[in-house]
């Protein structure tokens, strides 16, 4: 399978693997990403996997466009079946409701479910990290139960604490940093998604990971808080 390579200016190309949002397309993206990442050549600055593409930044002074395309075609044409089938499963503890999830009641009311049922449905599924973007450590997760989908807040909050777990439309996500935002907040995790300590940089999630949320008590939350 040869994917189209489309220039994005003079120093980047996008490798178009698929245009639909699906775990199958994303799996092909990850297979091609792994293959290219293992056979990097000088001049490739970095490769960014997204839902359906690999966005490849390069230095045309070191690697010209024709050679870049040859390298991409030669290496990316892998069969998804060849890649390791076990992706990483990351468990994220969340304290739902109360002060940590001020919008849990609103999400439950919108869904016509009890708060307990919203938590059950949110923790029941396994989510796929399609890609990271928006903020350092922010994961675009797929696979949420549509029954708990909820529109964004009409008026966004000016300050959302780091670790907040929210719902916006049919998406769920975790704020890696304190930031403004309009997501409906249903809980908060004490785990840190992005941290810088001295020179240690840590990202909890990578594209291709699987995620499960588990419900913890406020006491658990406070005990784990600060332990990262």
């Amino acid at each position: 399978m040869e994917y189209p390579i489309i220039p994005c200016g003079d120093s980047a190309v996008t490798l178009l693997i698929g245009t639909e949002l699906s775990p199958a397309v994303n799996r092909l993206v990850f297979a091609a990403f792994s293959a290219l990442q293992h056979k990097l050549v000088p001049g490739v600055r970095e490769i960014v996997p997204t839902y359906g593409t690999l966005f490849i930044h390069y230095n045309p002074d070191v690697l010209d466009y024709a050679h870049l395309c040859d390298w991409i075609r030669g290496v990316s044409a892998v069969d998804a079946a060849d890649m390791p089938s076990e992706s990483r499963l990351v468990c994220i503890p969340v304290c739902y409701g109360g002060e940590y999830g001020p919008d849990l009641a609103a999400v439950a009311a919108h869904a016509g479910l009890s708060e307990q049922e919203v938590i059950r449905r949110h923790t029941e599924r396994e989510y796929l990290v399609y890609m990271l973007g928006f903020l350092p450590g922010f994961a675009y997760l797929g696979g949420m139960d549509e029954a708990i989908a909820c529109p964004r807040l009409a008026v966004p909050r000016t300050h959302i604490p780091a670790g907040s777990v929210g719902i916006a439309g049919g998406q769920t996500g975790i704020y890696p940093l304190a930031s403004p935002g309009g997501w409906q907040l249903i809980g908060r995790t004490p785990r840190s998604l992005f941290s810088i300590r001295e020179h240690e940089i840590d990202f909890l999630l990578s594209a291709g990971d699987r995620v499960r949320f588990c419900s913890i008590t406020p006491e658990d939350y406070r005990e784990r808080e600060g332990r990262g």
């Binding site: 980047a12 639909e20 960014v48 997204t50 839902y51 359906g52 966005f55 890609m131 990271l132 675009y140």
Partner: peptide, 27 residues
């Protein structure tokens, strides 16, 4: 469907162009 963004990329969300610069989001 969200894709990468290079410096200089010209996004047109509502008929008006935005040239993405150094602090742009990654996607």
């Amino acid at each position: 469907l969200s894709d990468g963004v290079a410096m200089g990329s010209i996004q047109v969300p509502n008929g008006q162009p935005i040239v993405m610069m150094a602090d742009r989001q990654t996607t």
